[in-house]
């Protein structure tokens, strides 16, 4: 049982407060959704866990040890990351790109072993891209590319996955496909911190939601509690209608409040 824990995190960039007093926990086996309006600081939060952005104050610990005390390679074996927009700068083959997720297990002099290649193939099967192995990543469709990127993040075998809007700009079929894979990961004991904008999917798939607004945690806990009318009005500035179907509540944003 592993624990990724953030306590009273403060982050400033170029003199501007980005995050203040943020606390949250991600445990193995849990899918934690990070939601909030654009510019709330969600991506910055993930990057501070990665150590790309320095914190000003507060604590980020992995299994009780400060995140900056973990050697880079060891940390990389514990936490994997799927970046927003999934940038790829060279036309790599899908198979090669996915195998890059094994780098944390290699020494700087080593290239992938047969075992790494087997694991790569397994990860590609899990996200249903094994038939694309020889294709060039930059020629894939959005849905294929998202699944390739997820395979790349999964193949590391890390206990935690930080996923920055992995279902952004996908059609509903591929959105559900990706969310199912993430859900399955948590059922296999991984902890996932997921940035997501679709409130209905967030409510349906996540075990816990953390609502971030202007760098502060406004609410956290059970999805149905977090997504109450008051929070939607105060943070998203929307008035929502709800309807119930088969015991699930659905949210439809149908009115803007105090637009600017």
């Amino acid at each position: 049982m592993s624990l990724l824990s953030i306590r009273n995190l403060h982050i400033s960039l170029e003199g501007q407060k980005i995050l203040s007093d943020v606390s949250l926990d991600v445990r193995s086996g849990k899918l934690v959704g990070l939601i909030g309006p654009n510019g709330a600081g969600k991506s910055i939060l993930l990057k501070s866990i990665l150590g790309v952005i320095d914190k000003k104050d507060g604590e980020i610990t992995l299994d009780g040890k400060d995140i900056s005390d973990w050697p880079l390679m060891e940390k990389a074996r514990k936490i994997s990351y799927a970046a927003q927009g999934a940038p790829v700068h060279w036309p790599l083959t899908v198979g090669h790109l996915v195998s890059l997720g094994r780098i944390p297990h290699l020494s700087p002099w080593q290239s992938t072993t047969r075992e790494d290649q087997i694991l790569t193939l397994e990860a590609m099967k899990k996200t249903n891209v094994d038939h694309l192995s020889m294709r060039i990543t930059t020629t894939l469709s959005g849905g294929e590319r998202a699944r390739v990127m997820l395979a790349r993040a999964i193949v590391t075998g890390a206990e935690f996955l930080l996923a920055d809007e992995p279902i952004e700009s996908l059609d509903p079929y591929h959105q559900i496909q990706i969310l199912n894979i993430l859900k399955e990961l948590t059922q296999n004991g991984h902890g996932v911190l997921l940035i997501i904008h679709d409130l209905n999917f967030a409510q349906k798939y996540c075990d816990e939601l953390i609502l971030l607004d202007k760098g502060k945690v406004v609410a956290s806990g059970q999805p149905s509690d977090v997504l109450n009318d008051r929070n939607l009005q105060n943070t998203y500035r929307i008035k929502a209608s709800r309807f119930l179907k088969d015991g699930n509540s659905f949210i439809i944003a149908d009115e803007l409040l105090n637009s600017d």
Binding site: V52, A76, I79, P87, I103
Partner: peptide, 18 residues
Amino acid sequence: SNGLDASSLGDDTARSLG
């Protein structure tokens, strides 16, 4: 070599790969 390969996914992802 591995670092250069990793950085084709962007600096943040490269760092996340150790």
